[in-house]
């Protein structure tokens, strides 16, 4: 389900450092780390190692990382840290994100508020395909959705989870599935494991 015909759906690719003169910040969702992944990242970022900072979020204490390492407990903590980064970001800086989509987009939108342009942000998906779903009816978001039909955390409607994605909200669209004929709800399937 990572590929879609719907072109608003972001496409992610393997991270590679861009050798720019600015600072390089890599933020990794620690609990999605697979064996060997950190070694691959260390290789991919060797060229900017001197200007690299890596933030490990909710990672096992034993996890190693390239560059200067900072450990954070939650995505909220990382988001706050991004928004209060000392002296702000420079135009030649780059931000690299690796993790689930809700993790990456929480941080990408925070970086945007801190002035970073989308063209300065790179993303690589890792871990679960779980989605953040935005309800078109009550405008609340429901986290950690792994099924094609989800119950809205705001209005409790059964939402069909569409592939249409908003980068500003970091969320997929959810639309009431049985609006036309109440109760006509298709089988719930776990498709975003």
């Amino acid at each position: 389900m990572m590929q879609s015909q719907i072109v608003s759906r972001p496409r992610y690719r393997d991270l590679a450092a861009e050798d720019t003169a600015g600072a390089h910040l890599l933020i990794v969702e620690g609990d999605t780390l697979a064996a060997g992944q950190m070694a691959a990242l260390a290789t991919a970022f060797a060229v900017v190692a001197e200007r690299l900072q890596t933030w490990l979020v909710s990672a096992p204490a034993t996890a190693l990382a390239p560059g200067r390492v900072r450990r954070l407990h939650t995505v909220e903590e990382a988001r706050t840290a991004l928004e209060h980064i000392e002296d702000g970001f420079g135009i030649a800086d780059r931000l690299y994100l690796q993790g689930t989509e809700p993790f990456m987009w929480s941080l990408a939108t925070a970086a945007g508020r801190a002035g970073l342009s989308p063209t300065q942000i790179r993303m690589q998906h890792a871990g679960s395909l779980k989605r953040r779903v935005w309800c078109t009816h009550c405008h609340q978001t429901t986290e950690n959705v792994t099924t094609n039909i989800a119950t809205c955390a705001g209005c409790a409607r059964a939402l069909l989870v569409r592939d249409h994605f908003s980068r500003r909200l970091g969320a997929f669209m959810g639309v009431m599935v049985d609006a036309e004929v109440p109760g006509e709800v298709p089988q719930r399937e776990e498709v975003f494991r």
């Binding site: 861009e18 720019t20 600015g22 135009i91 780059r94 342009s117 063209t119």
Partner: peptide, 30 residues
């Protein structure tokens, strides 16, 4: 030394335009 969110505009002789565009690319400007 420019902060994120800066946009750079150049208008001048071709040599100046090229030099600025190249310098920005070298420095890592998107």
């Amino acid at each position: 030394r420019q902060p994120a969110g800066t946009h750079l505009y150049v208008c001048g002789p071709a040599a100046l335009n090229d030099e600025v565009i190249q310098a920005a690319a070298n420095a890592g400007w998107p």
